[in-house]
Write a protein that binds this DNA or RNA. Structure first.
Length: 439
RNA sequence: GGUCCGGUAGUGUAGUGGUUAACAUGCCAGUCUGUCACACUGGAGAUCGCGGGUUCAAGUCCCGUCCGGACCGCCA
């Protein structure tokens, strides 16, 4: 790769180089012109004096518009006078490689006239030019890398399960129907059944990072109809505690990696620190968590068997205060709130399941799965499911199935809370929701 | 799906039923000895989401409709 990234320009002081970038700002004064250029890694000021020798360059700058792309040849120098990084680029040649229209549909400078979200999403390619948006996707890339690093080190296999399904994948959410050569098929809501199949295949430990589809008509800041789900499943476990150990260890590695690689940028742009967990994540049984919320915050949720949004926020507040943890596991939910394949604890009759909450929102659901086919069938019937519709799935359990468990992790929800942005739309490359399928 | 709120120059907002719809920013032109959110002067730019109604008069009030947002429910 020969392109010189702007972040590395200090390595080239005094050398004749070629740079390319977007025109960020133009300040055309009487005797001198300043053009600030931008690439994804930084900015650099280009300075051109107005005189006879520079006439050609001066005319090019005069005809330039912001957000155009240019290619410039010249020399970069240390220059104390320049507040932007204390350096400047003196061009000997400038070529406008693509000229932008004068007026942009959104205000990407974003000082005080922050454009409305709907308009920004219509023009997402411009919105994404902001450095904070670049950092979000850099963060996503690194988070995924850190997870893969952890899994590969621990002998996991990566799978790619199908997204076109002959039957719904049963997360409890609504499914999208599709016409498929005259038949009705569904978009996957979750790789759930297939990662369990991998357990039956003897793969021991698997993971998948991929898209899932939910036909929920949800109008909130933390729902999307298509999002990236991070799933993993492990064999030969004795309880859901082991699944939580796994997720916790993985997340600590992710947070460490993020802090090390983008911690400084994160602080500059978002004015916040990435907090690497120092203690174990608290694990609070659901029934106890209910009580804690009621006793400490005098809040009584309507449903006895599940949390509402407010309860999720309050238990996170409690975990932060009492354990100084941004993460908290809530465990052992009643069967009523869980899908049929979660294993029940024989003593308590509660599920061997957990949710992981992060800064006030649910980012994971996990459990030990029921691997005994007779019990599994019984639980499906209790949830009013037809055994015919999941016949292919039950089949996985007929010929030896290791005890296993796993979890699904909402990557976008995680990013949303990591960067503390208000909407899942800001951490999704192109958001898909009930009212948006374009661009 | 439910409740509430909103839609006015490119963008973000203001706008007591009554002149030429205001402000900021952006854009264009000019002025300006190195700017750095440059500054200054001037200019262009709005069928006030759409349709109907009330009224002498509607951006403003009423009804409908479309689009969007927040919260709730559902879930990652």
């Amino acid at each position: 790769m020969s392109k010189i990234l702007f972040k590395d320009l200090a390595e080239y002081f005094g050398k004749e180089i070629e740079i390319q970038g977007f025109v960020d700002k133009i300040r055309d004064l009487q005797y001198v012109q300043f053009v600030v250029l931008r690439d994804s890694t930084g900015k650099i000021q280009m300075t051109i004096e107005k005189n006879e020798d520079n006439k050609i360059l001066n005319d090019i700058v005069s005809s330039m518009t912001k957000e155009s792309t240019i290619l410039a040849k010249g020399t970069v120098f240390e220059q104390e006078k320049v507040k932007l990084r204390g350096m400047e680029f003196i061009p000997s040649n400038i070529e406008i490689t693509s000229k932008s229209e004068e007026e942009l549909p959104i205000d990407i400078l974003d000082y005080n006239n922050k454009s409305k979200q709907d308009l920004r999403l219509d023009n997402r390619f411009l919105d994404l030019r902001l450095d904070k948006n670049y950092l979000i996707f850099k963060g996503q890339t690194l988070a995924e890398m850190a997870m893969r690093e952890y899994w590969i080190k621990n002998d996991f296999i990566e799978i790619h399960s199908p997204k076109i399904l002959g039957t719904a994948s049963e997360t409890g959410a609504e499914v999208f129907e599709l016409e498929y050569f005259g038949k009705k098929v569904y978009l996957a809501q979750s790789p759930q059944f297939y990662k369990q199949m991998a357990m039956g295949a003897g793969f021991n430990n698997v993971f998948e990072i991929g898209p899932v589809f939910r036909a929920e008509n949800s109008h909130t800041a933390y729902h999307a109809t298509e999002f990236t789900s991070v799933d993993c499943e492990i064999s030969w476990i004795k309880s859901h505690e082991e699944v939580m150990d796994l997720e916790e260890e993985k997340l600590v590695h992710v947070m460490k990696t993020l802090k090390e690689t983008i911690g400084d940028n994160f602080k500059t742009i978002f004015k916040k620190e990435i907090m690497v967990p120092e203690n174990r994540f608290p694990r609070i049984p659901f029934l106890e968590a209910k009580q804690i919320v009621q006793e400490n915050y005098k809040y009584f949720g309507e449903k006895s068997y599940d949390f509402d949004r407010r309860e999720e926020e309050l238990i996170c507040l409690y975990a932060k205060k009492k354990y100084n943890s941004e993460f908290v596991f809530v465990t052992d939910y009643p069967f009523e709130a869980r899908p049929f394949y979660h294993m029940l604890d024989e003593k308590t009759n509660l599920t061997k399941s957990f949710d992981l909450l992060y800064k006030g929102i649910e980012i994971t659901t996990g459990a030990q799965r029921e691997h005994r086919i007779d019990v599994l069938k019984k639980q499906a019937l209790e949830k009013d499911m037809s055994l015919d519709s999941i016949d292919f799935y039950l089949n996985f359990f007929k010929f030896g199935m290791p005890p296993h468990g796993g979890y699904g992790f909402g990557l976008t929800r995680f990013l949303m809370r990591l960067f503390e942005v208000d909407s899942i739309r800001d951490v999704t490359f192109l958001y898909r929701g009930p009212n948006r399928v374009m661009p």
